[in-house]
Nucleic acid binder design. Structure first.
Lengths: 207, 207
DNA sequence: CCGAAGAACTTACTCCCAGTAAGTTACTCC
DNA sequence: GGAGTAACTTACTGGGAGTAAGTTCTTCGG
């Protein structure tokens, strides 16, 4: 049992939740350093000081563990962007602030980002679908902003198209910036993207 | 020797170029069906009716072989899009026609596309850089079109940003369309994208 | 305090697959 | 026909994902 007589959970000496966190932290670090392919489950197990089957018991597979990392990191990224968006004075500033927050976060957390880049690694099987769901929160946020700024004549399909466009654009820009020697600043990138998209958003015509 | 006395290449019974093509064709088919991870080199070798080390001799590694497939498919895709762009009456039509050709090609060649999607698989090591170079032709084409349509006050960094944006957007849209039950038509997707971007392209202001 | 039940955890494997060392066969030219 | 080389094969290694089967720890009812 994990509860006392009054039903309150009690600290066990071997605490599953804590172990899961330990494993996840180590996985995040190693995946971030060496990439998905370059990381072995044995390595993560050794880093935590635990045997490999334990990790399989908790996370099911290498994909599962990677996905758990991805999911947690994406959540942090979404928080950073959401916060920036909500703090903005008007809709135009909100979109711009969101872009800046996105690029800035990725500049500040290169290891986190390199995990997110490796999302592409999961292009096969059920993991691909799971990875899409992780990204979906983001697309949702973007879709909401699009809805607020586009003409009311727009239909749901078009909103999806625009949201996917913006999501794809920001991801590609982020990857490109990390692979370029002297990338434009987070701010300039965000500003250019904003200039490119803002007008068009308001003038989307019906099909 | 592979030449006769007058220097003209002669057909050898065992013809390397032909073998390379055979291997590449088989690899393209199998990678397209089963994905990068799901494909083994033994499988490709068996399909061609050749031993595995031969493939390694010609293509160096699994990544190398995959990259060769990717490169050939990308070239076909680029051709299709270039042709559509060049055949258009004016700049606005050219951009739109390019988008349509892109989405249409991917609808028509699902196996080819699934290889290109797996490009993300090569996020590590020198293969990642090689994959970027394969994509670079495309970004180049887009950059050219941007240059023709944007105000002359734009700088090179901004052109790169815009080109990466468009490249990222089209790729994400293509992936999204394949993973959606009833995706919008190639035409509607292209039209919406065009509406979103065209105006902004002309009003990009200086930093 | 004792023993049963189950959760946490380990040892010691299997299998698959990328990549290779070393050798064999087929062709070309002199 | 024999030397040289390109095309090709057999038979292996190494490493890593995933697992079967067992052991140790913790809790709880009696």
């Amino acid at each position: 049992m994990t509860t006392t007589t009054d039903g309150v959970p009690v600290k066990r000496k071997r605490d599953r939740a804590a172990r899961e966190r330990e494993i996840l932290d180590a996985a995040e670090r190693i995946f971030g350093d060496r990439g998905y392919q370059g990381t072995s489950m044995d390595e993560i197990a050794a880093e935590v000081g635990v045997s490999k089957p334990l990790i399989y018991q908790y996370y099911g597979s290498k994909d599962g563990l990677f996905l758990a990392c991805l999911s947690r990191l994406r959540a942090q990224l979404l928080d950073a962007v959401s916060e920036a968006v909500l703090a903005a004075a008007d809709a135009e500033q909100a979109m711009y602030a969101g872009f800046v927050a996105w690029f800035q976060f990725l500049d500040d957390h290169p290891r986190a980002w390199s995990v997110i880049v490796d999302e592409g690694m999961l292009s096969a099987g059920p993991a691909a679908q799971a990875a899409d769901e992780v990204r979906a929160d983001f697309v949702e946020l973007i879709a909401t902003m699009v809805r607020l700024n586009a003409p009311s004549t727009i239909d749901d399909e078009e909103i999806q198209i625009v949201a996917q466009t913006i999501s794809g654009a920001t991801e590609r820009l982020a990857i490109w910036r990390t692979r370029t020697d002297t990338p434009p600043s987070a701010d300039k990138t965000a500003r250019t993207l904003q200039d490119l998209l803002w007008q068009g958003l308001h003038t989307l015509r019906e099909s």
